[in-house]
């Protein structure tokens, strides 16, 4: 098994199995472009701690994938889901960095997992709560907001109904 070195933007090196690193489509295509002999792949858009977290995902998933023989498919999916759930329990800040990294490195599974994590933060909240949660500033003027409400009238849930939630 070939090992390669991924270098983050702040110059830290991470040694990983090629198989795991190739979960990232970006790394895979970079490896194909670079010569056979190169073992160091520079990743200028990812910082050290995020890269470590991403690689944790990659190694875990390849390891589980490789254990084809000793566990059934169903058990493996369940194990993977449980692991994913624990893995995504990070701070909101970390989640952004992770989603950006997953987008840049193009790891489809991880990207989906992160989106799910952020979507969970939005679900079942009022606009005001969502704003608080993401530290956003309300950049609507009052008449503007009224206007959106009016144009979306076809779907807006009653205020009372929303308060009940």
């Amino acid at each position: 098994m070939r090992s390669i070195i991924l270098r983050s933007c702040d110059g830290a090196d991470h040694v990983v199995a090629q198989e795991a690193a190739c979960l990232s489509k970006t790394v895979q295509s970079l490896l194909e472009e670079l010569e056979e002999s190169t073992l160091v792949v520079p990743l200028p858009n990812v910082c050290d701690c995020t890269l470590r977290k991403v690689l944790q995902y990659c190694t875990q998933h390849t390891a589980l994938q490789r254990r084809v023989t000793d566990i059934s498919d169903e058990l493996r999916t369940r194990e993977m889901e449980a692991w994913d759930k624990r893995y995504i329990m990070v701070s909101t800040d970390e989640l952004y960095h992770l989603v950006m990294a997953a987008h840049y490195l193009n790891v489809p599974g991880l990207l989906e997992l992160c989106c799910e994590g952020i979507a969970n933060l939005i679900r079942g909240k009022s606009p005001e709560h969502v704003r608080q949660c993401f530290g956003l500033v309300k950049n609507f003027e009052a008449p503007e907001e009224e206007n959106i409400r009016r144009t979306n009238l076809w779907a807006l849930v009653d205020e009372k109904e929303q308060a009940k939630k």
């Binding site: 989106c115 606009p127 704003r131 929303q162």
Partner: peptide, 22 residues
């Protein structure tokens, strides 16, 4: 990515909540 995130939120909540955030 935002589209991918909103895709995982129930559609009615997207219309009712996400619209009015920013």
């Amino acid at each position: 990515i935002l589209v991918a995130i909103f895709d995982l939120v129930p559609p009615l909540e997207v219309i009712n909540t996400c619209c009015l955030v920013s």
